[in-house]
């Protein structure tokens, strides 16, 4: 219920703002909805959303798995931390635009370049978060696993992974939002389809309803993914906590 109310307030504010600002600058919800339906009818909406989603999924998976592995290593092995730290700081502070432009210049305007560029942008934040997680691992439980001679795979799955889970969830959530933002830039600059490309077109034509139609459809997809996938996953992970948040 509070969520629905929140949506209602959002649409009401939008409608009032569009009345004040005028249709040309901010079209009211029905106009945007009409544009959305038109795109949906032609199939473009789903095609572009699908393409963008696929890029997000690939880049996100790549960055999360690689970033988690590197972060874990850096948190556990001192030498790895020392060696990796300067790279990490460099990557963390490298503007997304620089990475994307360089990737397109070096690898051409290709799908691989786009996905790699998005993944590289996300990678360092995953590394930083997982490194903190690995540093915070409970040495007492490690000792328990050692004395009971638990096999490594079982220790990892039952002792280490549950301790890293909140960090993985945090990295996933912040990473997902980062990837959503960057994927559109990458599409705008060098892909012939996707939500970012369509928004670029809408911008050039000053087609504000189209622009909003794509932005909002995209936001809706993100919201659904968050509600259906991310939040239940987190709830499941923290079910052992006496008072789960």
């Amino acid at each position: 219920m509070p969520r629905l109310l929140s949506f209602a307030v959002f649409f009401a504010t939008w409608w009032i703002a569009s009345l004040l600002a005028g249709d040309a600058k901010l079209p009211p919800p029905p106009t945007v909805l009409a544009a959305m339906l038109a795109e949906a009818k032609s199939g473009d909406l789903f095609l572009n959303l699908g393409v963008t989603l696929a890029r997000v999924a690939l880049a996100f998976t790549l960055a999360m798995s690689l970033g988690s592995a590197i972060g874990y290593l850096m948190g556990r092995v001192r030498l790895a931390d020392r060696l990796g730290d300067p790279w990490l700081i460099l990557l963390l502070n490298l503007p997304a635009l620089v990475v994307i432009v360089l990737a397109y210049i070096w690898a051409g305007l290709t799908e691989i370049a786009a996905i790699a560029a998005i993944a590289i942008n996300k990678l360092p934040t995953a590394v930083v978060t997982l490194r903190e997680g690995a540093r915070a691992l409970d040495a007492a439980l490690d000792e328990m696993a050692t004395v009971f001679a638990l096999p490594r795979s079982r220790t990892f799955r039952h002792v280490i992974l549950p301790q890293l889970a909140p960090y993985i969830a945090a990295a996933a959530r912040s990473g997902l939002s980062l990837v959503w933002k960057i994927v559109l830039v990458a599409e705008l600059l060098g892909r012939p389809n996707g939500v970012g490309f369509e928004i670029g077109v809408a911008f050039q034509l000053f087609d504000i309803p189209l622009l909003l139609a794509y932005s909002l459809s995209f936001a809706a997809v993100v919201l659904v993914i968050e509600t259906v996938l991310v939040q239940p996953f987190e709830a499941r992970l923290s079910r052992w906590r006496p008072r789960a948040a």
Binding site: E143, V159, P162
Partner: peptide, 16 residues
């Protein structure tokens, strides 16, 4: 030899 240990703090896995 199989070693069983009971630490001073129980050291159980809270998530299991």
């Amino acid at each position: 030899a199989r070693i069983g240990i009971v630490f001073q703090e129980p050291r159980l896995l809270p998530w299991r």
